[in-house]
Amino acid sequence: MINKIFFFYFSAVIVAMSLMAITRRNVMHGVLYMLLLFFHIAGLYLFLNAEFISAVQVIVYAGAIMVLFLFVIMLLNLREDILKKQFIGTWPMGLVASAGILMVLLLSMLTVKTGEKGFWGIAQIESVTQTVAIGTTLYTQYLFPFEVASLVLLVAIIGAIVLAKKRLK
């Protein structure tokens, strides 16, 4: 019972905050609603026994990515852009399209059949703690994708510096 109450609280806030984030005229308000959204998603992850992902969500998403957004918005002078109408003229078409995708997703999830359960049950994770379990999986089974992810981040660093620096004479 109590976990249903918490689930409904978190899901209601997540849906409301994401709706608020995309409908605000001022970009700054949208980013602040996104910040609340990320904290509530991190709370939802705690219910799914994903402490490590929950911490990463708060540190990386809320702490790094959203602060980067805030810095960029404060660097730009957006006084004219926030006076414009926020939606395009044909926004009902976008509503119909996304509602159609939503219907397909919701209906197809009714018939989801889950496969066999894996190795890391709750008792198994508790015996070694969650971070050890996820680290073991990450550094043995998914070692090559992990290295590729670090390469992606390196490319992003170089790309961002090259794009945003001023031309030197």
Binding site: A50, G115, K117, T137, Q141, Y142
Partner: peptide, 10 residues
């Protein structure tokens, strides 16, 4: 969480 496999979290 429901399939007891950490691949999703990775």
């Amino acid at each position: 969480h429901y399939l007891e496999d950490l691949a999703g979290q990775v």
